[in-house]
């Protein structure tokens, strides 16, 4: 049982990172939202497997919460935004896709190097995977910096959040439920606000390429 759960944790943690990198590769906004949904499920798998090995009911509840919020509500909300503008693509990112994939590889390498001491925090098999969480955070940040579309940036923000969550699951074997609850609600709130904002922006300005909003800065 422990062996199976350990393998699931390994696989799911890697999946979280890979999906984050894939977010840099896909330019179709709807596909991006789909990736986010899968990442949420992978994250929930990590939490659920950890809960199973540790027999931690609170962490199990957290896993359910992760599925509901990160694989359910949030992607659905974002999906509606994406569908309202069919065919929308990340037409011209600041850094093109091959270059950003190379950069992502470099960031993952950096995360593994600087994240190595994290293992000392909580000796154990899962903690050795913690650099994956850090790599996911950096990947999400890269997505946030290089994409022009507001929706892609929201996805980048959520990938960062997923990376942080992955790191906490792996390092601390789950934060107290109340903390996770607070964090998830925050993310939900951010998404709801951003969705409303995006709607308003589209109504007023016609398109949602943040790059063109430069003149508002004073």
């Amino acid at each position: 049982m422990t062996g199976l759960a350990g393998a699931v944790i390994d696989l799911a943690a890697v999946a979280v990172l890979v999906i984050g990198v894939a977010g840099l590769w896909r330019r179709d906004l709807r596909a991006l939202v789909g990736l986010l949904r899968i990442q949420g499920i992978a994250l929930a798998l990590v939490a659920a497997s950890t809960a199973a090995t540790q027999h931690d009911v609170g962490l199990g509840v957290t896993a359910v919460l992760v599925v509901v919020v990160k694989a359910g509500v949030v992607p659905t909300l974002l999906g509606r935004v994406a569908r309202s503008d069919p065919g929308a693509r990340e037409s011209a990112p600041f850094i093109n896709v091959p270059s950003s994939l190379v950069l992502a590889a470099a960031l993952v390498g950096l995360a593994v190097v600087v994240g190595a001491p994290l293992h000392a925090l909580a000796p154990g098999r899962a903690a050795a995977l913690a650099p994956l969480g850090l790599a996911t955070v950096l990947t999400g940040y890269l997505l946030l910096v290089t994409r022009r579309r507001a929706l892609s940036q929201v996805v980048g923000l959520l990938v960062i959040d997923n990376g942080v969550a992955l790191m906490t699951f792996l390092l601390t074997a789950g934060v107290p439920l109340i903390v996770e609850l607070g964090g998830s609600l925050d993310v939900l709130l951010v998404v709801v606000v951003l969705r409303a904002l995006l709607g308003t922006m589209r109504a007023r300005l016609g398109n949602v390429a943040l790059d063109e909003l430069r003149e508002l800065h004073d």
Partner: peptide, 20 residues
């Protein structure tokens, strides 16, 4: 200069610098 991306890039660079 008002560009959101530039501010975000500053954040990423600082984060990377702190990590290193």
């Amino acid at each position: 200069n008002g560009s959101v991306h530039r501010y975000l890039a500053y954040g990423l660079l600082v984060l990377l610098a702190v990590l290193v």
